[in-house]
């Protein structure tokens, strides 16, 4: 008899574990940075998907792409409108490719992680928070390079009474520094919580349904609820990538134009 439990992941946290397939050892220097892990494998899969979405769908460089190209056009159009609305001014075009790259990467890796037995790239806290810290640090460097010390004007909202300025600067600075964490934490925590929720609910339901025939039939009612949770997770996968984009564009606006 087929043992269903054995086809299921035993620990809900197993899915986030990354394994090393291949690594180089030298006695001279630390080569751990070049290990091929599950993480690297899935990064390459995401890269291949994104490249194929562009290379395969352009209908051999004709004026009109194939039907597949509509998805690309829609994503591109959405991104252009979002970034234009968020940033305003004239500089949005310089940063649109950068933000678009982030959107595509997060969207594709989020949706890829929704496939059963897949690996959630965006639930890796170290990676995502490094990414958001990188974005934040780059923007801070850019702000200081562009505005010099005037950059600190970002921390004083317009029309503040002079008495409140020290307090507000403190609060605004805290919130500005916390952006580096919150941008990534929002994404990674959402994705990780979603995947844990799905797998825990699924595991409980599987145990419930494997008791006897009656519970198997009864189990279809909670199965519908789990289906709703899965649909919610799909929505979260898309919404979170969009949220990252909107926030990144608005942070970029803060840095470029100060208010």
């Amino acid at each position: 008899m087929l043992n269903l439990i054995n086809t299921f992941i035993n620990s809900p946290l197993d899915q986030f574990e990354s394994q090393t397939f291949f690594s180089i050892f030298t006695p001279f220097m630390d080569m751990n940075n070049f290990n091929i892990t599950t993480f690297a494998l899935y990064t390459f899969i995401v890269l291949f998907i994104i490249i194929s979405l562009f290379m395969f769908t352009n209908n051999n460089n004709m004026i009109m792409g194939s039907k597949w190209f509509i998805t690309q056009e829609m994503i591109y159009d959405t991104m252009v409108n979002t970034i234009k609305n968020q940033m305003g001014g004239k500089l949005w075009g310089f940063y649109m490719p950068f933000i678009y790259t982030f959107f595509m990467f997060i969207l594709v890796s989020n949706l890829l992680s929704m496939i059963p037995y897949s690996f959630a790239l965006t639930a890796q806290f170290v990676f995502i928070i490094s990414l958001s810290f990188m974005v934040w640090l780059g923007m801070t460097i850019m702000g200081f390079y562009k505005h010099g010390l005037v950059f600190f004007a970002l921390f004083v909202p317009q029309g503040t009474p002079l008495v409140l300025v020290p307090l507000l600067v403190l609060i605004e600075m805290m919130s500005y520094i916390m952006r580096s964490l919150s941008l990534g934490l929002r994404l990674a925590a959402n994705v990780m919580a979603g995947h844990l929720l799905m797998i825990i609910l699924g595991g409980l339901l599987m145990q419930f349904m494997s008791i006897n025939i009656l519970t198997t039939i009864l189990g279809f009612i909670p199965l519908l609820i789990i289906l709703c949770v899965v649909m919610l997770e799909f929505a979260i996968a898309m919404i979170q990538s969009y949220v990252w984009t909107v926030l990144m564009a608005s942070y970029m606006k803060d840095v470029q134009y100060l208010h």
Binding site: N6, T7, D14, E17, Q19, T38, I115, Y117, S118
Partner: peptide, 11 residues
Amino acid sequence: LGYSMEYYFHL
């Protein structure tokens, strides 16, 4: 791919 990896490493 994912199931075979999961089987090899855990199951």
